[in-house]
């Protein structure tokens, strides 16, 4: 069953030097109980996509296209209805658990607030359920009373509170924006496992935003690689991992340390992708990746390549797919 379908999403910002296009024709698709990985380096539009889904784009940005949550177009329903959906139908987990919690409000109340707002529970009922939710994410009330303040918890514990906050009302869609980036490595795995468990338990759809391909491989069903506001490759995770059709995807993989080789002799040198993501104000008219791509031809700088279908649900946008794959 389709939970989230993003069709031709564009986000534009009117600046002093004309209109900047921050997201360009983004199409994403997510079923219930599934997990979609959104990959790309900083500034490629991952977080912008998350904010667009939530309807919380910063002032001055315009979104066009359609964002369908269970068939309802979030871009056209208006702020009041959106307020009712946020927290209830869709929720979000943030990157920085230190800053995503209000420092002067006890954790129990922060988790309970959503319940009181959306389900109209009394303070007592809401706190009871908040306690249960916190216990579910691994913070039992006996050891972590509801009156604790965020500064009394560790980073991982705070992220658990953030997750509890997001899930109290049983949303259908969870957007996790780099949920483990700010945590140390041992805690990362625990938090990812917890999110995966909860997604299954609550039968939610998960949009997992990350730049860690290891995380994508481990916990997503489908993935989309984003570059400079565009989706350059998407498909089922294992297929994308196998074919790596787009040169940018290839570059990302080559830049990832691998655990497979034990001997130093067989270990390859890590490569980097030269250059950086072009600014939204200075994107080339052709393929946005052209300046950094080793496969680039004249054709690439003339017009943007269309998204080409490679397999049933796997597609990539590049003029030189055959040459890349022949490598």
């Amino acid at each position: 069953m389709t939970l989230l379908a993003i069709e031709n999403l564009c986000v534009e910002l009117d600046g002093p030097d004309g209109t900047l296009r921050l997201l360009d024709d983004v199409n994403l698709f997510l079923s219930k109980g599934r997990c979609l990985g959104l990959v790309g380096e900083s500034g490629c539009g991952k977080s912008m996509t998350a904010l667009a889904i939530m309807g919380l784009l910063p002032r001055g940005m315009r979104a066009s296209g359609r964002i369908l949550l269970e068939g309802e177009d979030l871009l056209s329903i208006g702020e009041d209805r959106l307020c009712g959906l946020r927290g209830r139908k869709m929720a979000m987990v943030f990157q920085e658990p230190m800053t995503a919690l209000n420092p002067v409000v006890p954790i129990g109340r922060q988790v309970a607030e959503g319940l009181r707002l959306h389900l109209g529970l009394t303070r007592h009922e809401a706190e009871l359920r908040a306690g249960k939710m916190l216990a579910r994410v691994g913070l039992p009330v006996e050891r972590f009373p509801l009156g604790l303040f965020p500064h009394q918890l560790s980073g991982g514990q705070r992220q658990r509170v953030v997750i509890a906050m997001a899930l109290t009302c049983g949303p259908d869609l969870l957007v996790a924006d780099e949920p483990t980036t700010a945590l140390d490595v041992t805690v990362q795995a625990q938090i990812l496992d917890l999110i995966a468990e909860l997604v299954e338990e609550f039968d939610m759809g998960l949009v997992l935003i990350t730049h860690d391909l290891g995380v994508v491989a481990e916990s997503t069903d489908t993935m989309s690689v984003m570059y400079a506001g565009k989706v350059v490759e998407d498909g089922p995770t294992d297929e994308v991992f196998q074919r790596m059709a787009h040169p940018y995807t290839r570059g990302l993989f080559a830049a990832m340390p691998s655990h497979s080789s034990d001997l130093d002799a067989t270990r390859k040198r890590l490569t980097t992708i030269p250059g950086r993501v072009p600014d939204a104000s200075s994107r080339p008219s052709g393929c946005p990746f052209v300046a950094r791509c080793s496969f680039a031809t004249d054709q690439c700088s003339d017009a943007p390549p269309p998204l080409e279908r490679l397999a049933h649900r796997h597609s990539a946008s590049c003029f030189n797919l055959s040459r890349v794959e022949g490598l």
Partner: peptide, 10 residues
């Protein structure tokens, strides 16, 4: 960011 979190919760 916690304001954004609050807005996300509706």
């Amino acid at each position: 960011e916690f304001i954004l979190a609050a807005r996300v919760s509706g």
